[in-house]
Design a protein around this nucleic acid. Structure first.
Length: 763
DNA sequence: TATTTTGGTCTTTTT
DNA sequence: GACCAAAATA
């Protein structure tokens, strides 16, 4: 077993943990808790719901609770189930618990829902049709598989993109709906009304391939528990204590999974914060929090409201912001009395001209802090979406300030890495059709679609795996000599590599495979600018394999943990998405891109009214509460979208921050840096006025076209489709569509643009 | 038959 | 500017 293997759980008690020579009564780690935290730790009997605001010591409570249960010998480590939301959190928790109780932390059942689901299915999967060596599909495989199914069904994939259908299916799985439980009304007219058929066909295909996708990891568990009471009972007996982190982000299937497992001992402890629920798009149901109290009427509720992380100023800003959400359980965060009572620096809001300038400004601030003696590790840039990272990366590179992207383009998702993995999958599991299909013509060896189709047809009719079918085909004269030879070589190589598997370490084997398959060569010959980088990635990939004993263990790790364990500790600024930042904290946090359509994201604004925007607001709240000492928000007046410049508005969230805790930075020298090139539209007035009136209501602050001052205006000031208008920047045009304050205008010269009504005037 | 070119469509967040 | 799928070309 390798150190970071999430399944490093041992069923059998290691001899050392039989005797527990640990301090029993009130060790010092228990004494350091406040009364509520202590309650959350000490109420071990029965269901407990811990509502825990940001920075209130939630992780600490969880860890202490685990240590407490173990220390009191209420259960053995393998009788405790602890579920986290990310693999990183799981790893961290295991380490920290280990620090308190020693090696027995190793035998806890601790991991993500998915990782734990796999563990169960590896053992009992046969009961639901999965052999124990089933493969876990990555998103790419899922999509290709569904496409195949849709093609076979003759669904127009132009009209119904596989991606859309797939996400609907996933949502069903999140809700624990097997194909037979999806009602026609749920499917609607999706995929010409045949979505359920597709779902069923897709599931059948998965079983045939002995594969499971992410949703299946839970869904199959539920089916298993439902139809095999003896298995369920085994686990119910086993898990005396169950702990759940980030409970607000669980979906229905996960909730059912938990409810089934805890039924016997009923010692379920869930920790969550409704204000930090940011995964509803993935099927998370905040309603699970409400449901908890309904299903467990004897549940004790503990509220953790004392914040130990942020300054009172940051806390006040965050609270005021989240207060704009209607749909809340209601929870006030207050500064812990014993904490530092200095109000702290105000939250700053900086307006800049455009994206590059924003990056420049942020990194100047970072350098200033560094000169002052702050560590780069204590700073983070948190963005709404991945693409925003680019501008900062460029700036980091030109300035030479070290940075670290966390959760960016995932390492294992890069195409060259996936190819390498597919080779390993083929070697490890010859029947892995999806992997075979992926690498059959990579690098190009003259085996095109037609050949693959032939293999497919043959495989299906003879009930063979693709690799076997290919082998049989080479023995006939169905194929042209050239393709036949290519296939024979490939299959020969495969079996040769497979025979080497036991003699070589995974790393050595991978290196050999990459060289002999021509993958390395392919990238060396490639003249595109990213080719050298890809070669480096492959090297890193081989290097990363060093720590694994078997290919199988490595592949298991990869399929669940798409993130590359980024080595931390180096002095560098962290840059990551807001979603990725949940659960982390930094001294200084930069929150760039606070503009309408970016944050809140356009998609959130588009669909319906409040719910989606409220989730965005929670995301903003998460961002603010990551900071211990200082928050810097920024927005740009212009943003390049697609390929053209578009004017943007400050985010409504900026207007929702309380005046008294916010400082607007608008330095007068700003105009100078705008330079000669941008003399249109916004020629003056920025620096002088800086009047910062907020609009409290639904409307975002609206910025007047040329005076660039903030003023609240009535929506859609009488503009109608077909009207001719004038815009400072884009000239004359005709209104094509009106959506409240947003106008779509066909400009005579500048083409089609979406602008806010306050930017135009009747012509 | 395999590869290159072109044309149209989009961009959240992740286990 | 990036990605995919269908048409064009070697």
């Amino acid at each position: 077993m390798t150190p970071s293997d999430p399944f490093a759980l041992d069923d059998t008690p290691p001899p050392s943990s039989q005797s527990v020579p640990r301090p029993m009564a009130d060790p010092e780690w228990l004494a350091g808790l406040n009364p509520e935290q202590r309650q959350a730790v000490e109420i071990t009997d029965g269901p407990v719901l811990v509502l825990s605001g940001a920075g209130t010591g939630k992780t600490r409570v969880l860890i202490t609770r685990l240590a407490y249960i173990l220390g009191k010998r209420l259960a053995q480590p393998w009788q405790i189930l602890a579920v986290t939301f990310t693999n990183r959190a799981a790893r961290e928790m295991r380490e920290r618990v280990g620090g308190l109780v020693g090696p027995m932390a190793e035998s806890l059942w601790l991991g993500t829902f998915h990782a734990l689901g796999v563990r169960i299915l590896r053992k009992h999967g046969e009961l639901v049709g999965l052999k124990s060596n089933f493969t876990i599909l990555d998103s790419d495989d899922q999509l290709r598989l569904l496409k195949q199914v849709m093609e076979a069904d003759g669904i127009d994939h132009k009209k119904w993109p596989a991606q859309v259908v797939l996400s609907v299916i996933q949502r069903w799985k999140d809700k624990s709906l097997t194909p037979d439980r999806v009602t026609p009304s749920m499917a609607g007219d999706l995929a010409a009304g045949r979505a359920v058929e597709l779902y069923r066909a897709y599931q059948d295909r998965l079983i045939t391939l002995n594969a499971a996708d992410f949703g299946d990891l839970l869904l199959h568990c539920l089916t298993l528990f439902q139809y095999h009471a003896e298995v369920l009972q085994e686990y119910q007996d086993r898990f005396r204590y169950i702990l759940v982190d980030e409970y607000q982000d669980t979906n229905v299937a996960q909730y059912l999974w938990l409810r089934l497992l805890c039924q016997k001992h009923r010692n379920l402890c869930c920790v969550g914060d409704d204000d930090q629920s940011i995964y509803s798009w993935r099927g998370a149901e905040v309603g699970n929090i409400l449901r908890f109290e309904k299903d467990f009427t004897d549940a004790k509720v503990v509220r953790l409201e004392r914040n130990y992380r942020s300054t009172p100023t940051i806390l006040a800003a965050a609270s005021a912001l989240i207060d704009h959400n209607e749909d809340r359980l209601g929870k006030t965060l207050k500064t812990a009395e014993d904490a530092d009572t200095e109000p702290g620096a105000p939250v700053t809001v900086k307006g800049v001209w455009d994206g590059p300038e924003e990056a420049r400004w942020v990194i100047e601030e970072i350098e200033a802090l560094q000169t002052k003696g702050d560590s780069l590790l204590s700073m983070a840039i948190l963005v709404r979406a991945g693409f925003q990272m680019l501008e900062f990366e460029e700036r980091f590179i030109t300035t030479g300030v070290p940075y670290r992207v966390v959760g960016g383009p995932r390492f294992y998702e890069r195409l060259e890495i996936r190819d390498a993995i597919a080779y390993l999958r083929c070697i490890n599991t010859p029947t892995d059709d999806l992997a075979f299909e992926r690498i059959v013509n990579k690098p190009k060896r003259g085996i095109g679609d037609t050949t693959v189709q032939k293999i497919h047809v043959y495989a299906r009719s003879a009930g063979l795996s693709l690799m076997e079918a290919a082998l049989r085909l080479t023995e006939t004269d169905e194929l042209r000599a050239q393709t036949r030879n290519a296939l024979t070589t490939l299959i020969g190589d495969m079996s040769r590599w497979r025979s080497l598997r036991d003699g070589l370490s995974p790393a050595d084997l991978a290196a050999q495979v990459l060289d002999e398959s021509g993958c390395t060569e392919m990238w060396m010959k490639d003249t595109s600018p990213e080719a050298p980088g890809r070669l480096d990635n492959l090297k890193e990939f081989v290097g990363g394999l060093e720590e694994w004993d078997t290919i199988g263990a490595f592949l298991e790790h990869v399929s669940l943990v798409m993130e590359n364990d980024s080595k931390s500790g180096d002095e560098a600024v962290t840059i990551m998405t807001l979603h990725g930042a949940k659960g982390l904290e930094f001294d200084t946090v930069f929150l760039p891109g606070w503009e309408e359509e970016i944050f809140p994201h356009r998609r959130a604004l588009d669909d319906g009214g409040g719910a989606a925007v409220e989730e965005e607001r929670r995301l903003a709240y998460v961002g603010l509460t990551r900071a211990r000492k200082k928050v810097s928000i920024s927005f740009a007046a212009n943003r390049r979208v697609y390929n053209q410049w578009q004017a943007s508005l400050p985010s409504r969230f900026i207007g929702e921050l309380p005046d008294e805790h916010v400082e607007l930075i608008s330095d007068n020298g700003l105009m100078g840096s705008f330079g000669e090139a941008q003399a249109d539209g916004f020629s003056d007035g920025w620096g002088g006025g800086s009047s910062w009136s907020k609009s409290r209501g639904r409307k975002a602050p609206i910025i007047d076209g040329d005076s660039w001052q903030v003023e609240a205006r009535e929506s859609s000031g009488g503009y109608t489709v077909g009207m001719r208008i004038f815009h400072q920047k884009f000239g004359y045009g005709i209104i094509q569509a009106v959506d409240d304050t947003r106008l779509e205008i066909a400009f005579d010269k500048a083409g089609d643009k979406k602008v806010i009504d306050s930017f135009v005037e009747p012509a």
